[in-house]
């Protein structure tokens, strides 16, 4: 090998290191910046007070609202999604129709959340008259993560080796007994991991919540499922774009910090479960 070639190889290697470094740096810069800027806002008062006059007070209703929204969303999407996944992968005949259905599900998984938010606004909020509310917001978030839940659950179910099903059936177990005791029992870490990833999406979504759940600055907790509800994302968005004082920006950072922390807790759990699941399926 000539010296020139060697130098080229070196340069390319360095280039790859730089690219990888930039990727990691992007994450740490964004997260680090938010944490450094936001930590000053965090106090018990901030976490437990109600907001007032746009940029004062705390974010208690926003934290609770974010959790409520995620809960309603999961209550809707998880049973539907997991049941659909079980049916599609274990019962449905493998033909054109299921193929088409699967293709649609995959396409819908890619629909921008803004489009689903618009649907929620027009259909749920206006046509059905559910108003800007916890219910509208939770359901619309549910529409968004439904395809993801189906897909993640189906993948987890498919990863369970067919030989387990055969073994169970050969022992005289019925189809449902086999699904419950062998398939789901082995697929559940994967399913839960998929659900948690969906939950992270729901927590982090802004556009849908802005359209269907509330203006973000709600100074009250919802008393009914038809009440508007605040959320950390919309709160951050409104303050970031409309507050012009230090106090407002600081609160936006504080809210981002809380949001990121919630998001990380959910996602890290999901990734941990998934890794454990992958290892189990490969025989450890």
């Amino acid at each position: 090998m000539t010296g020139n070639k060697k130098i080229t190889e070196k340069l390319v290697m360095i280039g790859m290191y730089v690219a990888a470094f930039i990727t990691v740096a992007a994450l740490f810069t964004v997260v680090g910046y938010v944490y450094v800027k936001g930590i000053g806002a965090i106090s018990l008062d901030f976490l437990l007070d109600y907001p007032y006059r746009l940029e004062f007070g705390g974010i208690f209703p926003q934290i609770v609202g974010t959790i409520y929204l995620a809960a309603v969303c999961l209550l809707f999407a998880v049973p539907l999604g997991v049941a659909s996944a079980i049916y599609l992968s274990e019962y449905a005949p493998d033909n054109m129709i299921t193929g088409t259905v699967r293709f649609f599900v995959e396409c819908l998984a890619g629909i921008p959340s803004i489009v689903i938010g618009l649907f929620g606004l027009i259909f749920l909020v206006h046509y059905l008259g559910l108003g800007i509310s916890l219910l509208s917001g939770g359901l619309t978030l549910g529409f968004m993560i439904l395809p993801w839940t189906i897909r993640a659950s189906e993948e987890a179910i498919k990863a369970v080796p067919g030989s387990y099903r055969e073994a169970s059936l050969a022992l005289g177990a019925s189809k449902w007994q086999t699904i419950r005791n062998v398939v789901l029992k082995n697929a559940y870490p994967g399913i839960i991991s998929g659900i948690l990833l969906g939950c992270g999406k729901a927590i982090g979504d802004t556009a849908i919540v802005l359209f269907t759940a509330g203006s973000g600055l709600e100074w009250f907790l919802p008393m009914a499922i038809t009440d508007p509800v605040g959320s950390l994302t919309v709160y951050t968005y409104i303050l970031a774009t409309q507050a012009h004082t230090e106090a407002g920006i600081l609160r936006a950072f504080g809210a981002s910090l809380v949001l990121l922390t919630m998001f990380f807790m959910v996602t890290v759990t999901a990734l941990y479960l998934r890794n454990r699941y992958v290892r189990r399926m490969s025989g450890w």
Partner: peptide, 16 residues
């Protein structure tokens, strides 16, 4: 890190 980056709420990145 890459997997985390996928889901970071877009409002946070926009704010940054």
């Amino acid at each position: 890190c890459v997997e985390m980056l996928v889901g970071i709420p877009s409002v946070v990145i926009g704010f940054f």
